[in-house]
Computed example of a mutant assay.
Amino acid sequence: MDKSNLLIIVTVISLFIAFFLAFFLLTVKNRNKPSNSLFAFYLILIAIDVSEPIVSLIIDRPSNLGMFRSTFAFLQIPVFYLYVMSVCYSDFRLKSKHLLHFLPFLIVNIILIPDFYSVDLISKFDFIKNRQSMIEFQFIHILIHIQLTAYLIAIFLILRRTKKLYLENFAGTNIHSYHWLFQFTVVLTILYSVALLKNIFKFSDYPEISEWIKIFGLVLQMFIVCWYLYKALNNPHLFRNIDSKLKLVSDIISEQKTTELSFINEQEHNEDLQKLKKYMSDEKPFLDPSITIQNISENINIPVRELSVLINHQLGKHFYDFVNTYRIEYAMEILKNPAKTKVTVLEILYEVGFNSKSSFNTAFKKHTGNTPTSYRKTLHNSIL
């Protein structure tokens, strides 16, 4: 089987997977409807992009439809950016201002009107043949790489900020959602870099290498998309969105004067700290897997802003780690209890407020230097 036939087969399979997953996302009923719709749109754009070998079989000459299809590449990364926004922020809503993200797509198609869309077939052939020397093509080529770079940087910054906000305000296992999304974005960055490499070979003296890179990219792209959707759809509860209006503690601190923070509020901070520690020890709110800083704020009558500064700045811990410390201490008490030697580690992790074995093991090892199982064995051996 030559590479042309292999490319067609891989393209057909990729199109089927993309459209099937898009249809599923648009029809499945859950609370993540906006995010699902945006990701479905992203998959459809991918399908349009990878359909080039099929389109070339049907239309074997330059055409307006073929060129218009290729410009849809300018919509991919903006739609993925909006998807990330919808996953990260609970107050995200599609608005008319988001149409500005489609401006590069519109600009490119306007540029192509005089030199491609509105000319005869011979002129279209000339445009394709001499495209590397044409200013319009060079501008389009530079624009798409600037767009990709700018959006990928923006996406990584959003994920970084959202993860910090989550750690400062929540103590569940939802942090894994952002790890997946970060990993998926990293892989997309690699895929887009592979596409750039493919284009370099396409216009070099080794165009056949470009075809093999394209086949590899198609297979890898669909594999990664399926992996990510499998994770997300099987764990829909993990995507706990953050209010975009929340402020990072570092931003709150920068808004306050140093003297006010260190002198005027010192006594108040100490009183609040004692109140917080007493509440955590007596009421054990950390046993709730979905506990948030807002919940604690309401129960001890300390404003969220002040409580966030107290935990994340004064104590030098994220709220996530602060709560997990209490959970691990409580788990250690259970593991030390001779009457509970038959209680399994899985039962303990659920009892102390975790709902993920991996999160429990990671937090326990970070706090004690051992896994829960090793810790229990060490205690048992010391008794013997």
Rank of each mutant, 00 (worst) to 15 (best):
I300E: 10
L197H: 08
K198M: 11
T341W: 09
N169R: 09
N32F: 09
D126Y: 12
A363E: 05
S51K: 11
T362P: 03
V50G: 00
N337T: 03
A22C: 03
F41P: 02
L248G: 00
L188V: 03
E208S: 13
S254I: 09
S359T: 13
G369I: 09
L310P: 05
K377I: 10
L75N: 10
V87I: 13
Y166Q: 14
T71D: 04
F102C: 03
N5K: 10
S356N: 04
R93C: 01
K33H: 14
E329H: 12
Y230H: 06
I144F: 01
I253L: 10
L57I: 12
P53V: 05
S297R: 04
K257V: 12
L25P: 02
W212Y: 15
N241W: 14
T259D: 15
L6E: 09
F184G: 07
I142C: 01
I9V: 15
K214H: 10
S356C: 11
F72D: 04
S133R: 00
L100E: 14
S123R: 13
V345P: 03
L191K: 00
L15R: 06
S56V: 12
N235C: 06
G217C: 10
L384M: 09
L246A: 10
L379W: 06
D91E: 08
T362R: 14
T371H: 02
T362L: 14
I383F: 00
L220K: 02
F322Y: 09
F286H: 02
I144M: 08
I59G: 06
N299M: 12
V219M: 03
D243C: 11
M332P: 09
F74C: 04
S96R: 13
L310K: 07
V119R: 11
Y178K: 15
S70Q: 15
S382V: 05
I128H: 04
S254A: 13
L287T: 04
S382Q: 03
H367N: 12
E351P: 05
F105D: 13
Q267D: 10
A232N: 10
T362C: 13
S308P: 09
T378H: 08
I48L: 07
V219G: 02
S63R: 10
I348P: 01
Y83C: 06
L38V: 04
R31G: 12
S382W: 01
Q221I: 07
G217M: 15
K164V: 02
L75A: 03
S204T: 11
E211P: 09
N270H: 08
L197G: 11
N299L: 11
L379N: 05
S358D: 12
D288Y: 00
S118Y: 11
F24N: 15
I209L: 09
S210C: 06
L218Y: 07
H318T: 10
L196C: 04
S51R: 05
I334W: 13
L287Q: 05
P236K: 01
P34A: 11
K97R: 14
N109A: 07
V50Q: 01
L181F: 15
K3A: 13
I110C: 01
F68G: 05
K284D: 03
K231R: 15
Q147I: 04
A73S: 14
F19S: 12
D126I: 15
A171C: 08
L346D: 13
F116H: 07
L65P: 05
K357N: 04
S177C: 13
I253D: 01
Y330N: 14
S51P: 09
L165N: 06
R161G: 02
A331C: 03
